[in-house]
Simulated scan of single mutants.
Amino acid sequence: ERRRNRRSIFINGRFALGVDETVIADLGLHVGQEISEEELGRVVRTELLVKARERALRLLEYRARSRAELARRLRLAGFAEDIIEEVLVRLSETGLVDDARFSQSWVESRSAGRSIGKTRIKWELRQKGIDADLVEEALSEIDEETEYKLAARAARAKWDKDRSPDVSVKRRRLASYLQRQGFGWDVIKKTVNQLAADDEDE
């Protein structure tokens, strides 16, 4: 029986379960066909794969996600590990899930949209389950000079807003701020020294 894009499976005249039309097509089933318990198991598994894939695609429509993020969300939705793994493999094969591309895009957007350093970006990517090697590869695009420019951009407004008459206090506050933003010590030192020197010249 049919309702929208769903079909109902009856066993011995009693409703057993509803499945997506694609499941019926994929398994080559037809109305009136008798199915064994083994075939019913395949129907159930295929239906779960369809549901898990649809859930993953809805998540990807909202924003790009890492493989681990999708796995975590599907797990929370109650899907079994083997179903999750198969869905993620298929999505990876079609390019819809690509941790290398995701990492590169994340680095570009985070460094352009907000002035944050490599340490913080690295932490964010690791939190999203990205492999350490992929993280390092993506971060290799940010050299020390680029990171210094990001730090300088973040530091200028912070420095100007600090009204403390004690330069040592301003330096300490700014250094702490830049550290929280994920910049390395060499970059922090260079940035703070430059701003302090600019103040002295004015």
Rank of each mutant, 00 (worst) to 15 (best):
E47R: 05
E47V: 00
L48I: 10
L49T: 09
V50I: 11
R53K: 15
E54K: 02
L57I: 15
L57C: 10
R58L: 13
L60N: 01
Y62V: 15
A64T: 01
R67K: 06
E69P: 03
L70W: 09
L74Q: 06
R75A: 14
R75N: 12
L76T: 12
G78N: 07
G78Y: 11
G78C: 11
I84G: 05
V87N: 04
V89G: 03
T94S: 15
R101K: 13
R101W: 08
R101H: 04
F102K: 06
E108D: 15
E108I: 11
S109M: 06
A112L: 14
S115A: 15
T119K: 10
T119C: 03
E124M: 13
L125S: 01
V135S: 10
E136R: 07
A138S: 06
S140L: 12
S140Y: 03
E141S: 04
I142W: 04
T146H: 10
E147D: 11
K149Q: 10
L150E: 08
A157D: 01
K158G: 00
D160Q: 12
S164V: 04
P165S: 06
P165Y: 13
V167I: 15
S168F: 14
V169S: 13
R171T: 04
R173V: 13
A175E: 01
A175G: 08
S176C: 07
S176A: 15
L178C: 02
G182Y: 08
F183I: 10
W185S: 00
W185D: 02
T191M: 14
